[in-house]
Simulated assay, not measured.
Amino acid sequence: MIEDLNLFASQLVTLWVILEPISHLSMFLSATSHLDPQQRHKVAALSLCFAFLILLVFTLLGRMLLQAMGISILAFQISGGIILFFFAMTLIFVERPHRPISVNPDRSLATLAVYPVATPILAGPGAILAMVLFSDNNRGAPLSQHLLTLGVLMLMMSVLFVVFWLGDYIAKAIGESGASLLKRVMGILLAALSVNLVLNAFQKWLGLPEI
């Protein structure tokens, strides 16, 4: 029971800092700024369904794809940890001016939900990496741990849906300074998690004591 709770907390924190709801909310609002609230809600539902399916596919087939390409999971973990670390540094130190995402207003809602909202905004490299690593860590584990990982993903999609649904109210409530603070806190957590990924990979590779 305690092991399952630790696994749940670890995976939830990892996905939370990668899919940080407030940062993704600003990108979602930018991509759907030309829509009315009802259309925006429909795009939110569709995009989260598409993102869930994309991440589910990589959870189930990610390791097989790596094996087919001759890439070891440790190499993938090290490279992914380095990429996530640099991404975390941009969250902490880089102040990017807000630029609206260019979207053709004549596109259908389903097309808009697929791109750019579902991918690359939601199901981007960081989220795909996390789900592949989760599936590898669960390899040979009881079915309950696989279901737990699926539950974490569904929970994060539900949280994002609520945030997107209430997007206008949340953006007004926290303001730019609140969003900036949350982004930096998430960056610090993501930096620590990325370093832990790299250290764990080296620990397994070199047979060092557990960190």
Rank of each mutant, 00 (worst) to 15 (best):
1 M>Y: 09
2 I>D: 13
2 I>T: 13
3 E>W: 11
5 L>G: 01
7 L>T: 09
10 S>R: 04
10 S>E: 07
12 L>G: 05
13 V>K: 00
14 T>L: 03
15 L>Q: 07
18 I>A: 09
24 H>P: 00
24 H>I: 08
28 F>Y: 15
33 S>T: 02
37 P>S: 11
37 P>Q: 12
40 R>G: 13
46 L>M: 15
47 S>K: 14
47 S>Y: 11
50 F>K: 05
51 A>D: 08
57 V>K: 03
58 F>E: 02
61 L>Y: 11
62 G>F: 02
62 G>N: 08
63 R>P: 05
67 Q>S: 13
73 I>S: 08
75 A>P: 01
82 I>G: 14
82 I>A: 15
83 I>H: 04
84 L>R: 03
86 F>S: 07
86 F>A: 09
86 F>L: 15
86 F>K: 11
87 F>Y: 14
88 A>I: 11
89 M>H: 07
96 R>G: 06
100 P>V: 05
101 I>P: 06
108 S>Q: 00
110 A>K: 06
111 T>I: 05
113 A>F: 10
113 A>D: 03
113 A>P: 01
114 V>T: 03
115 Y>E: 04
115 Y>W: 06
116 P>T: 05
124 G>K: 02
125 P>H: 08
126 G>M: 08
133 L>R: 04
133 L>D: 01
133 L>P: 07
135 S>H: 00
137 N>D: 13
140 G>K: 00
141 A>N: 01
146 H>D: 04
149 T>L: 14
151 G>E: 03
154 M>P: 01
156 M>V: 02
158 S>E: 06
161 F>R: 08
164 F>C: 05
172 K>W: 13
172 K>Q: 12
172 K>P: 09
175 G>D: 07
175 G>Y: 12
176 E>L: 14
179 A>D: 03
182 L>R: 11
183 K>L: 11
184 R>P: 11
185 V>E: 02
190 L>M: 15
194 S>A: 15
195 V>L: 06
196 N>A: 09
199 L>F: 12
199 L>P: 02
203 Q>S: 12
207 G>Y: 13
207 G>M: 15
208 L>F: 15
